[in-house]
Amino acid sequence: MATLASLLPGLAVAYLLARREFRGRALLDGLVHLPLILPPVVTGYLLLLAFGRRGWFGPALAELGIVFSFRWTGAALACAVMGFPLMVRAMRLSFEAVDTKLEQAAGTLGAAPAAVFLVVTLPLALPGILAGAVLAFAKAMGEFGATITFVSNIPGETQTLPAAIYTLTQVPGGEAGALRLTLVSVALSMAALIASEWLARRAKARLGA
């Protein structure tokens, strides 16, 4: 969920950072990468300040029917924010690798800039975009600190896998459950990796490389 939601903004930011020169570019770059450097707990606390029930944007969003605090949506938001830098980095690299000469050629053939992006840039950057999405997914799977700070650890609502495993290891007789979830975690991660590998290879094969 977190991965899907951050895909579009991720693409937009990555494209901006890769192709455009604008004021505040360094600032945007810094903001995007902040969660990578900050301790996750700090990120979570900032999210709480911003989107909490009495946070800066919380009340306004609540009127629109969007509530993050202590809901699964909040967990998704935290995971998305934490995965975002990894995703943007991978996508940005893949956008930068697309030859602008091909985009120019598409323009001379009558393709408007939006069409050039859809039929040339995006398909050519696809392997990197997938890699970015998988990285963000992996990060979301492992997210612990920011989520627990922002929306606590409510089973069935805001509990991430590592949080659940941690909880189980804290109670007597929870080892079996923890082991089961660990296996689930390993399986999910493997599946994601294999899927991205396969997609990337298919995309590469289509380029005839």
């Binding site: 120019q104 598409a106 053939l109 069409a115 040339v120 050519l124 289509r206 380029l207």
Partner: peptide, 20 residues
């Protein structure tokens, strides 16, 4: 007039075909 509305075909030094 923007590039894509000029209707000017351009054959570049390198072919610049779409690899995908």
């Amino acid at each position: 007039v923007p590039v894509h509305r000029r209707r000017i075909g351009y054959v570049f030094q390198e072919a610049r075909l779409m690899p995908h």
